[in-house]
Nucleic acid binder design. Structure first.
Lengths: 180, 180
DNA sequence: TCAAAAAAACCGACTAGTCGGTATAGTGGC
DNA sequence: GCCACTATACCGACTAGTCGGTTTTTTTGA
């Protein structure tokens, strides 16, 4: 039996989920509290301001990225493959959190922007260690971003057809044939 | 001598620019009006509501995409190359407009979402006609999306390093070596 | 040709409603 | 008794949209 998630955890998740599915404007204090199943007073008890809530979201992303980097470092031979494929997992805690922070960044939230920049730098470095060829790393990261971007639009409403895992498989195979 | 852009044109551009550089929240009627050099009353004279302004933005995107598709159809052999490279041109009217509509889509604006879906379907079809290999088309489009996504984050604040044209050149050459 | 009338473009104060944040009295469980 | 809340009320800042009125441009008819 796992613990039921704490109220604090639920509040951060509620904020994250509303950001992802409805955008920054809909993420009001009351909407967040309601989704987490507490009153507005309950929210402000744990987070005195929206900025504190955002800061908590940033911390969550940092630790999730840390864990992701550790996985990639643990098996460099599969790092690139892992990076591309995990971009597809829109439901994973990391991707959802990343998407939420991206929404804030696009709303010109400087902290969110800097955090994303740091994360991307770290992914780049780990991929460089694993792959060793700068252009290939750029290719892998751009591809991952593309998959991620597509997924993030699919998530909100209706995209032509979701990029399905089988297609990604074949694409990964295609770029696997590149000799550099 | 070209005409000075009309107030209507300036208002749509102002809306678009604020969406791109500061996000949906900052795109208030007054901010839009101020950027276009008119008063709030002047804005509401031309657009009775924010939705009408958004509708005008959607129409602009449609006609820009139409023109882009025509270019691609006119020289199928360079269509894929053109698609990838034009994703980099963040300052072009098409990319700016596309970015603005994307911001609205991420704020869960259903119309924006459907429009983007239609555009992407059209691009896909034109690329399919030009390239003829479905996985390669997906690869090209995902790569374009990745470049575009990167550029859109760079635009708002600070990304590690902008994807520069020389890197894109080399990446295009890399995927050009793929035999399918 | 030119003044008067009409239409179009625009201004800015106002209304009604929303949101972030503060405050406070009360409740159930450990 | 105190922690983790609920419920409600409130404030100030801000926002979309309205409206009466003003300025600018265009049209018209003598």
């Amino acid at each position: 039996m796992g613990h039921a998630p704490s109220t604090v955890h639920r509040l951060i998740t509620a904020y994250q989920d509303i950001l992802v599915s409805e955008g920054e404007r809909s993420a009001t204090l009351e909407a967040i509290a309601a989704r987490a199943g507490v009153s507005k007073g309950g929210l402000t008890y744990h987070f005195r301001s929206k900025d504190e809530l955002a800061a908590a979201l940033f911390e969550r992303l940092q630790s999730l990225v840390e864990a992701d980097l550790a996985v990639m470092r643990s098996d460099p031979s599969r790092a690139a493959d892992y990076y591309i494929r995990s971009s597809l997992e829109v439901e994973s805690p990391l991707e959802r959190c990343n998407m939420a922070v991206t929404r804030l960044a696009q709303g010109s939230h400087p902290e969110a922007n800097e955090l994303l920049a740091r994360c991307r730098t770290q992914w780049f470095e780990v991929l460089m260690d694993a792959v060793g060829h700068e252009d290939m790393v750029h290719l892998v990261m751009l591809l991952g971003d593309g998959i991620y971007f597509n997924a993030s639009l699919t998530g909100t409403g209706a995209m032509p057809e979701e990029t399905d895992p089988a297609t990604i498989d074949r694409i990964v195979r295609l770029i696997g044939t590149i000799r550099y």
